[in-house]
Design a protein around this nucleic acid. Structure first.
Lengths: 106, 106
DNA sequence: CACTTAATTAAGTGTATGCTAAATTAAATT
DNA sequence: AATTTAATTTAGCATACACTTAATTAAGTG
């Protein structure tokens, strides 16, 4: 799932879509009106975002309202964080090691 | 830069490379030995990661040591966080609103 | 039940991207 | 200076992906 989420946010227009729906639910056509690409193109992007777990759909009659899915972003953040945390810890240890060596030589 | 960083972590092999160098600096060939693709392919991936600001190179003789660049991941995290925070705040407000309505009706 | 509205799925096309093998760069060794 | 080692750049190819238009689905509405 994390793979799909990362894949999904690669495309700049999909990130733009996420920025739009972050403000609140929007229909497919409302989203499309903000771009100069066709409605099907938007629909395809929304499908990718949905499959990545970054948006959710709520159907109401012929309309479909798209909104952000928090859990998806949480997963994404944790993934990035894992790199951050590990490398941070390693750097911390390296710094401490360096500090220790300094004391030994002086 | 954030665009390049996101673009960079899209490719699964590049994420694998990041996992490897997260443990500590590695040469291009050391990294290549973990994969079944050619050395040039790895080199190209490393270039993408470097241009995205996610790794740094340290040259030593004919060798080049690749290591993680924390700042790059920090940027990435902040970007993801921005979606998270905004939508979280919105949901918090929505929950409070719901709570208020409950009280009004009971 | 035909028609409109909202959206998606399908088919086809051009560009971007990851791979390979071959050529090239650059530093160290003999 | 020639050779070896480490890595990159180049050129070419195959696939993935974002778009388009046309066709299809599905839920109201006259």
């Amino acid at each position: 799932m994390i793979d799909k989420a990362i894949q999904a946010i690669t495309e700049p227009r999909r990130r733009d879509i996420l920025h739009l729906v972050r403000e609140g639910e929007l229909t497919s056509s409302a989203i499309a009106s903000h771009f100069d690409i066709s409605a099907p193109a938007i629909s395809q992007h929304l499908k990718v975002l949905e499959e990545a777990g970054l948006v959710v759909v709520r159907r109401a009659g012929t309309k479909r309202f798209y909104g952000i899915r928090r859990e998806g972003f949480a997963e994404l953040m944790h993934y990035i964080e894992s790199f951050w945390d590990d490398s941070l810890m390693r750097l911390k240890k390296a710094a401490e090691e360096e500090e220790r060596r300094k004391h030994d030589f002086n």
